Simulated assay, not measured.
Amino acid sequence: MMKLVRSLATAFVSLTIACGVHAQAKPQVVLLATGGTIAGAGATAANSATYQAAKVPVDKLIAGVPELAQVAQVRGEQVFQIASESFTNEHLLTLGKRVAALVKQPDVDGIVITHGTDTLEETAYFLNLTVHTDKPVVVVGSMRPSTALSADGVLNLLNAVTVAAARDSRAKGVLVVMNDEIHTGRDVSKSINIRTEAFKSPWGALGMVVEGKGYWFRAPAKRHTMNSEFDIEKISALPQVDIAYGYGNLNDIAYRAFAAKGAKALIHAGTGNGSVAAPVVPALRELRSQGVQIIRSARVVGGGFVLRNAEQPDDQYDWVVAHDLNPQKARILAMVALAHGADSKALQRMFLEY
């Protein structure tokens, strides 16, 4: 009888220890809050498009989704509390350096960044280029404030933590999770401003999150994170890069003004295949001779890319084409590349590789 009691006691202790180990083994995810609609509040539940962004602090975001505790051990940090259209280069650097520091910690398995949707794609791509880690880094936002009927932020946040906590999310670069879809931060862009399915990738999503599980269908093809030659820890400042928009009856005023104010590179958001209107070509050639990098992107939405030496003799003019990157993402890559000392030849290689 005593042997049986001892055996049962031993088994109970072992089970208790095993349960404790299992509980401790739950993934540890850090939630970095920066503001945006996901932290916004409207006057009434009917306000889904009219509201004040960046009002809810990170502790309330976490407390508002108790299901997070079933997925991971989540702790939060309030990095900023701003609407994302006010993100500056300094904000990018501060956030990037904090992410880079956290992913080095053994008690961090993944990072989730809550972010306003207006410039979410730019921040995601910046981190994708500059943070060296194979740990999941997931950027998430919402199109409706938490106070709205059918608010999307709660499920978006739960899905983001689910992806950040999963081992099969590793080594896929910085991800964006919105509307049940998993996108690469390199491709995804905000395509509409009032619907929950606002974020799309021209080459398709990487996967989906359905009822607490991620499903993957493809992987990023371009260089990122651990395979990147860029390093956030080596960037102390980002050079000025500006975007000038192409349209009918275009003139060179914006290009010259940006250069006069110190732009080191100009992204031409051209029509079609990054076309440059004839009256603007002389100004861009002149600015290039003065050391300003000229990068042809396209204002078109939904896919396609700018072909080198099509529309313009890029080799002759020493211009760069942005490949399939839209103007705002071309600006991010140009800043990072110039911060690492890239010339026009290196820039062109980088636009094809990243």
Score class of each variant (00 low, 15 high):
Y255S: 07
N309F: 13
G212N: 08
T184W: 05
L338F: 15
Y125D: 00
I235D: 01
R223T: 07
D109G: 15
A23P: 03
T162Q: 13
L266E: 00
K97L: 05
D318L: 14
K222V: 11
L92V: 01
Q316K: 14
W319E: 02
A257R: 14
T123K: 10
P202I: 08
T16M: 15
S86K: 12
G214Y: 08
A277V: 07
L287V: 01
N249Y: 12
Q348W: 13
L333K: 03
I113V: 15
A265D: 02
E181N: 11
Q78I: 02
A244W: 08
A45W: 14
E77I: 12
V188H: 09
F258S: 09
D187C: 12
V58E: 01
Q81D: 01
A54Y: 07
A346V: 04
A244F: 08
V58R: 00
H340G: 07
W319C: 05
E211I: 13
H132T: 06
F12L: 15
F351H: 01
T10W: 14
A219Y: 05
F12A: 15
A221Q: 13
D59E: 15
V320M: 07
S48P: 00
K190Q: 07
A166S: 14
S201P: 03
E121C: 09
L31I: 03
V154T: 06
A54C: 10
K104R: 15
A171G: 12
G96C: 07
S275N: 14
L92H: 07
A339T: 03
A165K: 10
T133W: 09
V99M: 06
L287Q: 00
G20C: 15
A330D: 05
P57L: 12
G204D: 00
V306G: 08
K97Q: 11
G214D: 01
T271N: 10
Y317L: 07
R6A: 15
G291Y: 08
Q81W: 06
V103W: 02
G173E: 03
G40W: 11
V137P: 09
I17V: 09
A25T: 13
A83C: 04
A322H: 03
M350W: 04
G212C: 09
Q28M: 04
E311R: 10
P239K: 10
V176N: 00
L93C: 05
A257I: 07
L95R: 00
L206C: 11
L120R: 05
H340I: 06
V210S: 10
Q290L: 08
T130S: 03
A165S: 14
D324Y: 15
M208E: 05
G76F: 06
Q240G: 10
Q105C: 05
I232S: 02
L155K: 06
V5D: 05
V336Y: 04
S169R: 05
P279E: 09
I111F: 04
A33N: 07
P202N: 04
